[in-house]
Design a binder for these strands. Structure first.
Lengths: 113, 113
DNA sequence: ATCATGCTTAGCCATATGGCTAACTATCGC
DNA sequence: GCGATAGTTAGCCATATGGCTAAGCATGAT
């Protein structure tokens, strides 16, 4: 099944976890072997491997095996779809920030739930 | 229980779903009642409500009830933490794009799995 | 008062996710 | 070859997620 499926949903899902974001920021400094990525997490190796697999399936990282150690590294462009989606939204959301005022008033007065 | 917990994980998770992103882009045009948000999805109301709850818990939308209809609207600032995290990463990732070259070579020749 | 509308709540079901242990494979260093 | 090292695979378990139906509860229209 699609080894690398960098759809928005897959990307966002991959990013929706502290452990995985932690691995990414660690890899932002330099490529690293699995064990080194696992160490600060306090999690067991198989668990970390799963997280790394999620990142790799989303296309956010690559890895290659040299001898018995697997080295992981970022795929910098991978973040682009996410970034552009966010930017698109932000542009539109801000574009109508003005028209929102009246709506906010409604909330103020009704203040439901 | 936290009604509004806009942590990064929660935000990313909320965004990791087509239906929910669909609702957001719809709301980018203007606030809308639940039924209208549900209509294009082909999903049942309770299901859509759950999606909207996820968005609201992440702080991405608000809603208020006027009579029997609940109107939902974006919370434009909500996207900011996500945007800034992405930007931070991008900055760092690109910063060491150069040093990545050697690594890519490795992948080329080993070509694991 | 009654009926349709627009949610809401409760609860069921299948699958996905995140964690673990145990056991296996493949190097590397001696 | 032998033991330690670094992954890897398989499988178990609890909880979360995403979908549904059925039933309930206001509110608006007649």
């Amino acid at each position: 099944m699609a080894k690398h499926d960098p759809t928005l949903s897959r990307l966002f899902h991959a990013l929706a976890d502290d452990t995985r974001r932690g691995a990414l920021t660690r890899l932002a400094k330099a490529p690293a072997p699995v064990t080194e990525l696992a160490e600060p997490t306090g999690l067991k190796l198989p668990t970390v491997m799963r997280h790394l697999a999620v990142l790799e399936e989303a296309g956010l990282i690559t890895s290659f095996k040299d001898g018995r150690t697997r080295t992981c590294a970022l795929v910098p462009e991978a973040l682009e779809p996410v970034r552009s989606w966010i930017e698109e939204q932000r542009a539109q959301w801000e574009a109508r920030l003005d028209r929102l005022d009246a709506f906010v008033m409604q909330i103020m007065k009704d203040d439901e739930q």
